[in-house]
Computed example of a mutant assay.
Amino acid sequence: MKIRSTVILSTAAALIGGAGLLTPIADAAPATSIDVLPRMIDGAAAGYALSYSTTDEHGRPAIARGQVYLPSGTPPPGGWPVVSWAKGTVGIGDSCAMTTALDDGSAEDPLAVELSKPLLTQLLRSGTAVVSTDYIGLGTADAHHYLNSVSEANAVTDIVGAAADELPELSRTWVAAGHSQGGAAALATGARANIYGSASDFRGVMSFAPSSNLEAVVPLLSPTTPRIAPLDNITATLIYVLHGLRDSRPDVDVNSYLSELGRDYLAQAEDSCISELREKGIGVAPQQLLARSLSDPVMASALREYLSVPTIGYTRPVVIEQGLADTVVPPALTTALAAELVARGTRDVTYLPVPGATHYDVIAATVDDALPRILGMLH
């Protein structure tokens, strides 16, 4: 139940950077609304649910929702520094969004939110505010374009300015951080910091187990691909990606690539949050979803444009932490990403493989390292 009446403000048209170009947007999406959160994470003295304007990967106006958490005490001159936290995968349906869980009084937060709490709680206790987007299409009218790096980065960026506009105790000095889906979004945010968003003091990226290089793996799939056990781990990911791509790129006939089983899974994708979808998909290989190869040039090109994490454009520090026991985001793909960042000229990249850490405990396992790194960027 909402505790405070909603405040609606008008906003100007936005600018987006698609393919490195700034394009003016007409008919910008409506303004910001903010409400007090019914419950908060540990370490927060105040919390707000925020609805705000952003743009999708095509430069179209969109609305995203998210949360804002403030530390206790008196803000420093200029306001609390901010971490814009990009969540890991929760799903693609409205019921999966954190804001929805807060609104309906769910007893449990999504797993991705629980995994982030060891770090977010420590950030708040250290005097750092946290904003966290639900991304476009989770709890809003639009479809969620899962793992589209541009739309997700835009949402991670725009929540910082929207929150600061509403809450004067927030500064515009910030770091992008995230895990898994959010790890990729945080990286894309860093690459786009000089071409997208309102004026701010962006300081760097902290990325945990970022989804990356899927555009190199997914086009290898076809109905005749031999079954390899590790590939079964990407069945749920493929369902969400193809669901998002179908909405993002109607010029690509995604349905023509799907088997009857694949069409059934995509039709139900919004009804299953990630834990449920992974359970439903046990024993289903990703190639069983397909009627034809994803290596077709039209599809392969669309996947590359939709999924690619940028490897150029970074002007601030980038830190990547990757568990070596991760079976969801293969360490080899993250290692390849880090190597490409260095090879393509990113000067300040720190890649930290973490022996024994899995996808689900890498944040908790590295919080003693990550926390001072983030605070060092901010201060």
Results as ranks from 00 to 15, higher is better:
Gly93Gln: 06
Arg60Val: 00
Val298Gly: 08
Val90Asn: 15
Leu21His: 11
Arg172Glu: 05
Ala101Gln: 07
Ala153Lys: 02
Glu215Gln: 14
Glu276Phe: 06
Asp42Glu: 14
Ala155Asn: 05
Ser272Lys: 13
Leu37Lys: 05
Thr55Val: 13
Val150Leu: 10
Thr157Leu: 06
Gly376Ser: 13
Pro76Phe: 03
His144Arg: 00
Ile374Asn: 10
Lys280Leu: 15
Thr32Gln: 06
Gly190Ser: 05
Thr350Val: 12
Glu321His: 14
Leu324Asn: 02
Pro330Asn: 13
Tyr240Ile: 09
Gly161Tyr: 13
Arg278Trp: 10
Pro250Ser: 07
Arg263Glu: 05
Pro38Ile: 09
Asn194Gln: 14
Thr311His: 12
Val309Pro: 03
Glu114Met: 15
Pro77Lys: 06
Thr358Ile: 11
Asp296Cys: 01
Arg39Leu: 08
Thr23Tyr: 08
Ala300Tyr: 00
Leu307Ser: 08
Lys2Thr: 11
Asn233Arg: 15
Val362Trp: 00
Ala153Trp: 01
Arg39Tyr: 11
Gly139Phe: 05
Arg39Ser: 04
Leu50Thr: 02
Ser106His: 13
Thr55Lys: 10
Leu371Thr: 02
Pro76Thr: 09
Ala209Asn: 07
Pro168Leu: 05
Val113Trp: 15
Ser211Ala: 02
Tyr146Trp: 12
Val205His: 02
Leu290Cys: 09
Ala129Gly: 07
Leu115Ile: 12
Glu169Trp: 13
Ala365Leu: 07
Ser95Ala: 15
Tyr135Ala: 04
Ser198Glu: 11
Thr128Lys: 03
Tyr351Lys: 06
Ser116Phe: 02
Pro61Tyr: 05
Tyr135His: 13
Glu279Trp: 04
Lys87Ile: 07
Ser198Ile: 01
Glu340Ile: 00
Pro81Ile: 03
Thr189Leu: 07
Leu102Ala: 04
Leu167Asn: 08
Ser151Ala: 04
Ile63Glu: 05
Tyr265Gln: 09
Thr54Ala: 14
Met206Cys: 00
Ile363Gly: 01
